[in-house]
């Protein structure tokens, strides 16, 4: 690579450029509209949605739907709103992300700096576990959670998300540590530093970016999970995604679209905020989750 310019050397004419911008803007609309219209309509009273045009601005701006979705909407048996489920999700996500990230960092460190015979095969086994269709583990997992008394509990969900999350977190840290100079580790060893000391004093201080990538990825994945939540949770542990689906797809009564929309926005807000604040790291996580190395 002589000059690492980020742009292409392709030259385009003026007419082509107008067309380019047109297409790009149209697609921007395509991606923005579904969510944008949903936000707009969550601020309308129900009558304006069922009787009016979804593209129109609200005649009466109201936060009623937002209040209703948060604390009053009927989900399951109780009119609790989404609030308790939001906290269920938080209680599940925080420990699951923390544990899987710490384990991933240690695993990545071992698999790159303390290599042993067969380590690549072990890593391959961990990596494949990221991609299995989870239907293949649902039945035995339900049995094990039942036997250990973890069924329907937040602890059970944390266990599930840690188990199926360490593949990715290990992948992130392994690829990151693979390019970390091994000579530094060797030099520290000669000076008498042990396994944990090297990890703590040499590896961790330079692991900031990859930790952010890993935390964001795990957070997004676990927050957005539906299958495990729907299979293994009960009222005290049901995450936000399951509650939202119950709210939207329960067949009883009038469909309160504005409440559904507000609920969907609550469910989307945490991951969306993370994306807006740390989009760069989110993209990096996506990329290294697919294009390894």
């Amino acid at each position: 690579m002589a000059v690492a310019s980020t742009d292409t050397a392709i030259r385009t004419g003026n007419a082509t450029r107008v067309l380019l911008y047109l297409v790009l803007l149209l697609f921007a609309l395509f991606y923005l509209l579904p969510f944008g219209i949903m936000v707009l309509n969550s601020l309308k009273p129900l009558s304006e949605i069922t009787g009016g045009n979804m593209m129109a601005l609200p005649e009466v701006w109201t936060l009623d739907a937002w209040r209703n979705a948060w604390s009053q909407a009927q989900i399951g048996v109780e009119p609790t709103g989404l609030q308790p489920y939001f906290w269920n999700s938080i209680k599940m996500v925080v420990p699951a992300v923390a544990i899987s990230t710490v384990l991933g960092a240690l695993n990545g460190y071992i698999l790159t700096k303390w290599r042993f015979r067969g380590d690549t095969i072990l890593f391959g086994l961990m990596l494949f576990s990221c991609f299995i269709p989870f239907q293949i583990v649902l039945i035995p997992m339900a049995r094990i959670l039942g036997i250990t008394g973890l069924a329907g509990s937040t602890a059970g969900l944390v266990l599930v998300h840690v188990v199926y999350g360490i593949g990715f977190s290990t992948l992130y840290f392994r690829n990151y540590y693979a390019v970390f100079p091994t000579e530094l580790v060797r030099a520290a060893q000669i000076d008498g530093a042990g396994f944990f000391r090297i990890f703590w004093r040499i590896m961790l201080p330079s692991s900031g970016p990859i930790t952010v990538v890993c935390v964001i990825w795990q957070f997004t994945n676990i927050w957005n999970d539906f299958l495990f939540g729907a299979s293994f949770a009960d009222f005290d542990s049901q995450p936000m995604t399951v509650a939202l689906n119950n709210l939207v797809n329960s067949s009883t009564g009038v469909k309160e679209y504005n409440v559904h929309f507000a609920g969907a926005i609550y469910a989307a807000l945490p991951t969306l905020l993370v994306y807006i604040v740390a989009g760069r790291y989110f993209v990096r996580g996506l990329m290294s989750g697919s294009v390894k190395g």
């Binding site: 921007a28 991606y31 969510f35 949903m38 957005n224 995604t241 939202l244 929309f261 969907a264």
Partner: peptide, 18 residues
């Protein structure tokens, strides 16, 4: 970022909107 943000959403949210 506009093209990419739907990736941060849950499929349940996407399903609700569509």
């Amino acid at each position: 970022p506009i093209y990419l943000y739907p990736m941060a959403l849950s499929f349940i949210v996407t399903g609700t909107a569509w």
